[in-house]
């Protein structure tokens, strides 16, 4: 029970830290001396930062009042962070290969890697057919039907 009720403290502190960083950025990332007072490029972001700060204070106040979240917040499961990192790695890997090797090469390879190794798919039919069909259908829609462009791949172009 004690661990759970700390939720609002953690949330409040997190929101406060975020809002302070945001307000800090407002002054360093936006030019301010433009426009009339209350109507500069800074005003709305600054106002939003203040709202966030206020919400953080409210959460901490709720913590002092002894609020508990109505539905329980699950703690971090075993391996959760590691597994998420792996999944996100595949996302980033696909984006990266898309940029450098182009759509036609990266898509079937990445789908194959995901189904075979991440999802442990045993059926060879799915492992081979799925990547090819998926690539072909996207290629068909965008290139053949809609005459659009998909990444050609920087490395492929230099060849």
């Amino acid at each position: 029970m004690i661990r759970k009720s700390k939720f609002y403290l953690a949330l409040g502190l997190g929101v406060l830290a975020f809002s302070i960083t945001w307000i800090f950025l407002v002054f360093f990332q936006i030019e301010g001396n433009i426009g009339s007072p209350g109507n500069t490029p800074r005003s709305i972001p600054f106002f939003l930062g203040c709202c966030m700060f206020l919400l953080g204070v409210i959460f901490i106040y709720q913590y002092y009042l002894g609020y508990r979240p109505k539905s329980s917040i699950e703690g971090i499961k075993k391996n959760e962070i590691k597994n998420i990192a792996i999944c996100i790695f595949f996302f980033v890997l696909y984006s990266f290969t898309l940029e450098w090797f182009g759509f036609l090469i990266s898509t079937p390879v990445i789908i194959f890697l995901i189904t075979r190794f991440l999802l442990q798919e045993k059926s060879w039919k799915i492992n081979i057919l799925f990547p090819i069909l998926m690539t072909a259908s996207i290629y068909f829609i965008f290139i053949t039907l809609l005459n659009s462009a998909l990444p050609r791949g920087t490395i492929i172009e230099l060849l």
Partner: peptide, 26 residues
């Protein structure tokens, strides 16, 4: 999980095509 894999590919390609920007994927 097959559907999710297909969605993964679609969302990466889709978010690129909106403005043809790799930054958008990230």
């Amino acid at each position: 999980h097959h559907l999710a894999c297909a969605i993964l590919i679609m969302v990466v390609v889709g978010s690129y095509v909106i403005r043809n920007s790799f930054l958008d994927i990230y």
